[in-house]
Amino acid sequence: MKLHLKIWRQNGPQDKGKMVDYDINDVSPDMSFLEMLDVLNESLVAKNEEPIAFDHDCREGICGTCSLFINGEAHGPDRAVTTCQLHMRKFKDGDTIYIEPWRAKAFPVIKDLMVDRSAFDRIIQAGGYVSVNTSGNTLDANAIPIPKHDADRSFDAAACIGCGACVATCKNASAMLFVSAKVSQFSLLPQGKVEAKQRALNMVKQMDEEGFGNCTNTGACEVECPKEISLENIARLNREYLSAALVE
């Protein structure tokens, strides 16, 4: 396949940046999207040009590092995948592909397609944990039975990989899906219920301070989320937060 690529190049946070055109030949449909970029980068290095910087690591859809806005969609046109799991068979010979970084005030561009998502870490630090120290003397793991239904829904929320596709895709750059997934994971488990109120308040406070937008329930995040985190979690966060704010 031959492809025309339009790729965002920006040499550092202060640089203005622009879209640059690249043509690439000999793309195999079996390549992953990132392997296609590897091939392009290899050709740039051969020309002694600086390769395109993009975030990636595990390349199996679980670390949440890769992050491209491809043809107007977070992680590209396929569903329930990260960019590293997107394969070139989803494109046609001669296609033009736009490749851009996540765009949000809270995710400043570092270079080219790499952005700084440390805002997510700070939100977790604000309360995304159960305050239990390491000890060999906690309760036996089976001491509290947890209904399978709750455990499964907690897992579904916990499957979030923190990639930021929800923010990137939301027209308001809202981080509600991310925050709600973590709040839901814990609020569905007895271990997490103890601090549920404080957690919801603190995480939302941090989320607001980071400069993410407000959720307007368009549902785009759920569609583009590579782990298919449900909007139901956002409703649960709203519920948890409002009840916490009321008794605060």
Partner: peptide, 20 residues
């Protein structure tokens, strides 16, 4: 102890219908 610790931290391990 690892399993106890992780459950206490809120790791959502797979469970059976009885909740264990």
């Amino acid at each position: 102890s690892i399993i106890d610790q992780c459950v206490a931290q809120g790791v959502p391990f797979a469970r059976e219908y009885g909740g264990l």
